[in-house]
Design a protein around this nucleic acid. Structure first.
Lengths: 132, 132
DNA sequence: CTGCGACTTGAAGCGCGGTTCAAGTCAAGG
DNA sequence: CCTTGACTTGAACCGCGCTTCAAGTCGCAG
């Protein structure tokens, strides 16, 4: 064994993702193995970082196809930069919304309203975001 | 027509949700019609508020089944309160993560790194959340 | 009474993000 | 050499959140 390359089981263990998910990501163009050891995929350690990024973005509501686009980007890809900027605005909005939701949940834990959902303080989470 | 009750088309238009989605939500116990006008569902206007709450929670990553649980909660439901408190922590973590991601995206829009994803500043989004 | 169109139903279908399965391949160790 | 066991493949399947479809039922206008 080379020592610098990791096999899929190792990557799965260290990334917390299932091996099946890694193969799935490969089909979708999100990652690729450096080579093969026989039939077996051999991954560079950097792949772990990339997977962390993928997990992060996916948790943030990005689709795998979007993530794949981002991963291919160079600094000269203008359209992609616009896409990233748009995503940034989207994420900002989500942060604001989630922050309100968090405050509502925090309140809910101590609220005395009977149908909890009727509490006006709880409902603040629902305030419409000003038109985008 | 009664004037206080809305039919499904009206609710769909005003909530921005498809009629099929409203029927789906009914099957899942998220909403219910006040009654029927012939076969047709007749909704109370408050349903619109409830739908706004549902959309908000769903966008925040809650499952419909979770939302249904929350919607049934009274102030004495201790287990549910714990669930809400747990969700609050979860949402807080998400907010933190998304905030980092937003900062990374903001940077990405002006970054000169070639594989954009290799930029160390970009990668800060990926910093592991301290063990939960 | 005759459309018409918006509603009703249950069942099937879809896109996403995977997991599971069956069958096969390979490297290392006894 | 032969077994073991982690890997390989493609294809089928899953849960979620809906949408679409086919077939039927209303209420209202003409």
């Amino acid at each position: 064994m080379d020592g610098t390359l990791l096999d899929i089981g190792e990557v799965a263990r260290r990334s917390g993702l299932a091996a099946s998910a890694l193969r799935f990501y490969e089909r979708k163009g999100l990652i690729q193995a450096e080579g093969r050891n026989g039939l077996r995929r051999a991954y560079r350690p950097e792949t772990l970082e990339r997977l962390a990024l993928i997990s992060c973005a996916r948790d943030a509501g990005f689709r795998l196809s979007e993530i794949a686009d981002f991963l291919l980007a160079g600094p000269s890809d203008t359209r992609l930069r616009e896409h990233l900027a748009a995503k940034e605005r989207e994420v900002s909005e989500r942060v604001a919304q989630l922050t309100r939701l968090r405050d509502s949940l925090r309140h809910a834990a101590v609220c005395e309203h009977d149908p909890l959902v009727e509490c006006p303080e709880f409902k603040q989470a629902v305030r419409r975001v000003p038109q985008g």
